[in-house]
Every structure is written in C-alpha cells, then in structure tokens.
Amino acid sequence: MIAELALALAASRPDLERAVALAREGRFVEALAAAEAEPDTVRRAQAVFHVRHHAGDLDGALRTAALARTEGATSPWLEEREAYAALSVRDAAHARAALEALDARPDRGGEALASTARALWDELGALERALSARDAAARRAWGVAAAGLVALTVGAVLLTLTGDRGRRSP
C-alpha cells in the first residue's frame, strides 16, 4: 500500500494519476488506456504494471515489468513490485532477475525499498530452497525406484534360473 501511495504521489502527469485513480475504482479498461497514454516510458511501464496487477492479470503485469527491464525503462519501484508479483505466483527466476536488478542500483532504490527487498530476498530464498529440495527428492526417488526395480528383476531372474533344490517329500 505504501508503494501504491508512492506511485500515486510520484505521478506528476495526468495520465498516470488518472490510471491509478481509475484502477482503484475498478475501471480497469479505462485505467489501462490511460496508463498506455503516458508518454514517459518508465512511468508508462509503472502505470501499466499497476493497472494489470490490480486487475489480477499477474502474468500480464510481469510481462510488462520484464519488458521494461529489458528495455531499460524500469525503476526501483517497478523492480520491487515485479519481484513481489513474481513471488506471489511463485516464479523464482523472475523474482531473482528483478531483485538482482534492484540490488545492482547504486542506492538500491533507497532505504524503504531496500528494506522491502531484503524481505523479498528472504522469501525468494525459501522458495528456491523448496524447489531445490524438490529436485533433490525427485532424483532420490528415481534412484530408489531404479534400484528397487533392478533388485526385483534380478531376484526374479535368479529365482527362475536356479530352479528348486530337487527335494522330494518322503
């Protein structure tokens, strides 16, 4: 919410202000049109991200932020929001890219953003550890499965080939 307020306060152009206000009212189509009319590329990316994020189009918001980052039309605020949205859909790679971009800035976006970024790094760490544990568990599972199936097969072959002991009941 602080970030939204910051965005709203930072909005010095009518299109951005209008987009934020319309999104708050739930008039997303008009809000997106206003956002896309913003002439400044960085502010346009921020506004489009904001509208799509509020409308629940998380994939669209993330695409917007990633494109802005690729084109150099991003901002610390957008990178922090991008990481937040990426983590909310559990997209670790996307979140990492955004946080690394934020970290690479000389001032890391200022103290307020740096503090939020630290929390996001922690969250990302937990997600990456969970995914890494999953991959290790899957490797372990395939190993156990392969060993078990080989053991069953070898056991069956040995029992078949060796036959019985030739006992005869009295």
Partner: peptide, 26 residues
Amino acid sequence: LFLPDGLTLEEAGPALASGSLASALL
C-alpha cells in the same frame, strides 16, 4: 523422503510420479 514440505501442487507435480513409485517400492 521424496516430497519435501513447502511446495504448491503445481511445483510438486514433477516429484509426484517418481516419489509415489519410490514410496510404493519401500
């Protein structure tokens, strides 16, 4: 052993088949 905590259904997907096979074997 084969399915750690903290995963969503979507994330656990790749581990479900191998994990259930290994668990069934053991």
